[in-house]
Design a protein around this nucleic acid. Structure first.
Lengths: 345, 345
DNA sequence: CAATTCCGGGAAAGCGCTTGCCAACCCGGC
DNA sequence: GCCGGGTTGGCAAGCGCTTTCCCGGAATTG
């Protein structure tokens, strides 16, 4: 990667390095127009491309924003990524991407790499966890982030603060009202559903999952319903699928319709997918709701009830866009929780 | 972003800058173990994080790989992105992301930005176009890429070469046998479908779309079928939706079942989605096939016939992973093109 | 034991750019 | 005609790191 340099441009234009720099790379001091023109011509002729690394080094600001996601191909994360990307574009920055499959120790690596690249800010999406196996990783991640912040970095986290992080300076959490929204969902579902409720959750210790479970239970309680049974499984489609497969028999043999709440949409999709080949139909044999309102749902049948989250805005907020409104979700009841007419009577 | 520097570490450890560098940032010369240990301790105590920018500047190699996609939230692109990301991880690099919504002039901006950051290589995903309105943008993009390559950069393009690019050095095209695969799909569909065929394509001039149309027509011809009518629309879900909406009446009033080939999966999904509220059922009233086999299809009903493409591998290949096998697709016939039994007789 | 390698640490020259500071110059006003 | 003030270019000192080259001492050899 050897390209022509500023000093070559300066020489060709017959000016000093300083002048060339001032002309080409925005400075408060604007050289005279005739000189500027000469410099621009020279740059053009040489095909000069400024070396952003060198600029970053000299100005100590890289114009980079780091994004940590569990899996970029997951619609939840790619929606957030889109938001971050847009915010970055507006701020004239570039996005550095890291997929970590969710392990805090990998996230720590990613943060360290971003810090090494002197990213101006770092966005961490993906649920925080207090699970025992993540303990060590969390400590390291928190330490890495603290160091990064102490050195002047900004970090935006989606949902919950990183476990153990102690710095507040430069640390920004995009709050997602998971609990309230889940409670709201429970309330609306409780209004029409008479039977039992079942929650399919992620592993205990995952904040996002736990918050939604808690909220849903609270909503049920407030509606005067008994608490729902909770099944724990993976926080992704595969987890939902497994849970669904395990549930099919039970649903078929029970006379009462079950209302299932999967703590996120991909899990709800997994559940539904596992139920289908078993002959369990939604909403005929059971009703189901998810959470997130990922774009994929638009074309999923039966239309899935869920809680809408403005994922792109969340990304934008986490990336520090000031013009984005705060996060507000909304319950969306759709076909998957509509009790069929014949049995309502 | 001021962190502690290598020279601080060196001073604390009581060694020279050179030695510290050799200890901490992999060099061929390994200092003695006791000294190394001292340096490592000092680095640890100071929380030293090497400045990758400075390293890049000194070694002139940034460890960055730039990825240009139309839309990171599109499942096609996010699958490729995942592949690129994995390859990058293996090569110990980081991914720089740019979403451009498909305009060559934006892509040019992105490439320039990557070049400025001295990315070691650039991956461009997303169909190339020869449409008139993209002419100027294409020229500029090609010029930018040529310059980048001439300066020693590597570029990997998915599908077709960038229009007008003249450099071959460092220029790497991941070939996708769109035409052959589309022909294969046509052959398989022609074997069971008796009625007319219809192609829902992207705008004329989009290589990927054009290749698939050509291949499909050839397949039909080889099977002794008349050529299919071609409808042009947007190369995304919305385009498919529009086409589907426009088609509904016609399908309902025609006695003969139509076989629709949408040139990519999201378009096929769009078509299906538009048809559904009109009461047109797939495959009862018409059959439909897509192309790409995006992950979303797994949960789309009716199961969509398509052509499987190893999208992650494509990403990996474009990112220069040598261990990835060459691209080979496969026709996947599923429910959406199964002629219902009662009418087969 | 002297002559010759070998080895590992350090000094210093960059990598390409920004920017504080200085000197030169122009202008108008007295 | 001289001086103050305002511009405008250029010089040079970094930004944090790698790497070449040099040099002293230890190890090797005849």
């Amino acid at each position: 990667m050897a390209a022509s340099t500023l000093s070559e441009v300066a020489r060709l234009a017959g000016v000093s390095l300083a002048t060339a720099s001032r002309v080409l790379n925005g400075s408060s001091r604007k050289p005279a127009e005739d000189i500027a023109e000469r410099v621009r011509e020279a740059a053009d002729k040489l095909g000069y491309v400024p070396n952003a690394q060198a600029q970053a080094l000299a100005k100590s600001s890289s114009g980079l924003i780091g994004l940590v996601v569990h899996d970029i191909a997951d619609p939840y994360f790619s929606a957030i990524a889109r938001g971050v990307q847009e915010a970055a574009r507006q701020q004239n920055r570039m996005v550095l991407l890291a997929s970590t499959s969710g392990a805090p120790s990998d996230e720590k690596e990613a943060v360290a790499a971003f810090a090494a690249r002197r990213a101006d800010s770092i966005v961490i999406a993906g649920s925080r966890s207090v699970r025992a196996e993540d303990k060590q990783g969390n400590i390291e991640l928190a330490a890495e982030l603290d160091r990064y912040c102490r050195n002047g970095g900004h970090v935006g986290v989606v949902g919950h603060p990183v476990v153990g992080a102690s710095i507040t300076e430069g640390y920004h959490v995009v709050k997602v009202p998971n609990e309230e929204l889940a409670a709201g969902l429970a309330a609306e579902l409780a209004a029409t559903h008479d039977g039992a409720f079942l929650i399919i959750a992620g592993p205990e210790g995952l904040y996002t999952s736990d918050d939604r479970v808690r909220g849903f239970q609270r909503g049920l309680e407030e509606a005067g319903k008994p608490a729902a049974e909770v099944i724990r499984t993976g926080f992704n489609r595969a987890g939902g699928y497994d849970a669904g497969a395990a549930l099919a028999e039970r649903i078929k043999s029970s006379p009462e319709r079950l209302c299932i709440f999967a703590v996120n949409d991909v899990m709800a999709i997994g559940v539904t997918a596992a139920l289908r080949p078993e002959g369990v139909w939604i909403p005929r044999d059971a009703t189901i709701a998810g959470f997130d309102d990922i774009e994929t749902l638009r074309d999923f049948r039966p239309a899935l009830s869920t809680v809408h989250l403005p994922l792109e805005d969340i990304g934008r907020l986490a990336a520090g866009d000031p013009d984005t409104p705060p996060v507000s979700g909304a319950v969306k009841l759709r076909r998957s929780t509509e009790i069929p007419a014949e049995s309502q009577a």
